[in-house]
Design a protein around this nucleic acid. Structure first.
Lengths: 200, 200
DNA sequence: CATGAAAATGGACTACAGTCCGTTTGAATG
DNA sequence: CATTCAAACGGACTGTAGTCCATTTTCATG
């Protein structure tokens, strides 16, 4: 009953998907993500434009597909790696570890991630991977700060490590201060507030 | 020595600027910001496309120009209004007040602000107004949390009230929880952390 | 292996942002 | 008022994202 739920992929489709991903990876590496047009990718891959868009939806989808492997790696380390990134450590520590690792991931593929987040408006929140990060953070946050509204707060924290923001932080202050800032933010939020009994 | 530093604006330029802003405001209100093209604005204003772009740079510039008045109002309330938004209140309270007011401003003009932030990549951080908000937050933060790196942290906090994030927060959780979340975030960050002497 | 329907293909087509440059206009000067 | 030239103008032009649909390919079935 389990198994190949998605009703298979036709042979020509698989072949073309590989051709496109290979061509896109090469072109992006050569000329930079920004300056490669979808026409150029289609031409280099030897497929029609329609094929390209049918398969990947838009430019952000193509970028997301290229990031997929790296993403899965980080997801695995979260789900079953060693603490504090993986299970076993206190929620606060796991949050800090996740944000540090995620920031490193984003900065390591900045242009691709930016493209995957900004090609179409709101793209960031529709990507499957974002749901995963959001869920992960929300669960940890609910544990570390049971008094807070974990789901929306998770969006708010993740905003600080979007490609645009992470890129500006590194460009203006350097990778070290960027990382320290994210850590500071996350630690500030993941501690229970002092009780503010009585006086305002 | 003070005064008209910018060497004046020619009469035709001023006339056209007014025509464009009026036409854009009308069209945006009628059809929604997203679905109005720059061609349509130029046609409705009765000016050429070149004029439109010469004056406003790009679509995000046009949106920013339309927001200008509302923005100045908020800036005035911050610089010389009554506390806690204006001067006089403790930094922590001013931060909370600013973020609440800014969130309300963003949500009140969501489409325009989104356009001003996302029309071109990185547009958000180049807009003059962003510099103002960033500076304001950084100064207050430096006072409330002298141990933190205020400038980058200010970017990180402002990320939570970008049009994209604010829009998602309201769409998914409603305006009330969105506001509470931003307040929670800001209050968490603007309190000195407990000293974590010794362990870990 | 023949067949036929669903899936995939490719490239012409549309719509839009943004550029370029020859022409027009405003206003400062004598 | 005539002259002059920098500033502003406008619309044709370019490059790109994304759509559409007539044609081709795959593969399950008999």
């Amino acid at each position: 009953m389990l198994g190949a739920q998605p009703p298979k992929e036709r042979a020509d489709a698989a072949r073309n998907r590989r051709k496109v991903l290979a061509a896109a990876a090469r072109l992006f590496a050569e000329k930079g993500v920004e300056s490669v047009s979808m026409d150029a990718v289609a031409a280099a891959a030897g497929v029609g434009k329609g094929t390209l868009f049918r398969r990947f939806g838009d430019k952000s989808g193509l970028a997301a597909a290229l990031l997929d492997e790296r993403e899965r790696d980080l997801q695995q380390r979260i789900l079953s790696g060693s603490p504090p990134l993986g299970p076993g450590a206190p929620a606060r520590d796991r949050l800090a570890a996740f944000f540090a690792a995620y920031l490193e991931y984003v900065l390591g593929h900045l242009d691709l991630v930016r493209m995957s987040e900004t090609a179409s408006p709101g793209a960031r929140f529709r990507i499957g991977a974002y749901r995963f990060w959001h869920r992960h953070v929300a669960i940890l946050l609910a544990e570390a700060r049971p008094d807070a509204d974990a789901e929306p707060l998770s969006h708010a924290l993740l905003a600080a490590v979007s490609a645009e923001v992470a890129g500006v932080l590194r460009a203006e202050y350097g990778a070290g201060r960027a990382a320290a800032t994210v850590t500071c933010l996350v630690e500030s939020v993941s501690h229970q507030p002092r009780v503010t009994h009585g006086r305002r």
